[in-house]
Amino acid sequence: MSRSLQQSVAAARVVEQPLAGRTALVTGGSRGLGREIAIAFAAAGADVAVVSRKKDACARLAEELAAATGRRVSAHAAHVGDWDGLGTMLDEVERELGPVDVLVNNAGIAPVYPSLDQVDEALFDKVFAVNVKGPFRLLALVGARMAAAGGGAMLNISSMGSRRPTAGDLPYTAAKSALNTLTAGFAQEYGPSVRVNTILAGPFATDISKSWDPDVVAAMARDWPAKRVGEPEEIVGAALYLCGPQASYTTGALLAVDGGRLAAP
Rank of each mutant, 00 (worst) to 15 (best):
M1C: 03
S2Q: 11
S8V: 13
V9A: 12
A10M: 12
A10S: 14
R13K: 15
V14R: 15
V14Q: 15
V14M: 13
E16W: 02
P18A: 03
L19D: 00
T23D: 03
A24G: 05
V26N: 05
T27F: 05
G28D: 09
G29N: 07
G29V: 10
G32F: 06
G34V: 14
G34A: 14
G34L: 14
A38W: 02
A40R: 10
A40F: 12
F41L: 11
A43D: 15
A43S: 14
A43Y: 11
A44Y: 00
G45W: 00
V50K: 06
V50W: 07
V50M: 08
S52I: 13
K55S: 03
D56S: 15
C58A: 12
R60Q: 15
R60V: 14
L61A: 09
E63L: 15
E64D: 15
A66W: 09
A66T: 15
A68D: 14
G70N: 11
H76V: 11
H76A: 01
A77L: 07
H79K: 10
G81D: 06
D82R: 04
G87R: 05
M89T: 05
L90K: 01
D91C: 04
R95N: 12
E96R: 13
L97E: 09
P99S: 05
V100D: 10
D101A: 10
D101T: 07
V102A: 00
V102F: 08
V104N: 06
N106R: 11
N106F: 12
A110Q: 14
P111L: 11
P114F: 04
V119N: 03
V119Q: 01
E121H: 12
L123E: 02
F124V: 02
D125I: 02
K126Y: 04
A129N: 10
V130S: 10
V132C: 06
G134H: 04
G134I: 02
G134D: 00
L139A: 10
A140Y: 12
A140E: 13
G143V: 01
A147W: 08
A147K: 15
A148K: 15
G150D: 04
G150Q: 02
G152F: 02
G152C: 01
M154H: 04
L155S: 06
N156D: 07
I157R: 06
R163L: 14
P165R: 09
P165L: 07
G168P: 00
D169E: 11
L170Q: 02
L170S: 13
Y172E: 02
S177M: 06
S177N: 00
N180H: 08
T181D: 08
T183A: 09
T183V: 12
A184N: 09
G185R: 08
F186G: 04
Q188V: 15
E189K: 11
Y190M: 11
G191M: 06
R195Q: 13
T198W: 08
D207T: 13
D207F: 10
P214L: 03
D215E: 15
V217R: 01
A218D: 10
A221C: 12
R222Y: 00
D223T: 12
D223L: 01
D223W: 00
P225E: 01
A226Q: 10
R228G: 09
R228N: 09
R228P: 02
G230A: 12
E233F: 11
G237T: 06
G237W: 06
C243E: 05
G244H: 06
G244W: 04
G244Y: 05
G244V: 01
P245S: 14
G252D: 03
L254T: 09
L254W: 14
L254D: 08
V257C: 07
V257Y: 05
D258S: 06
G259R: 06
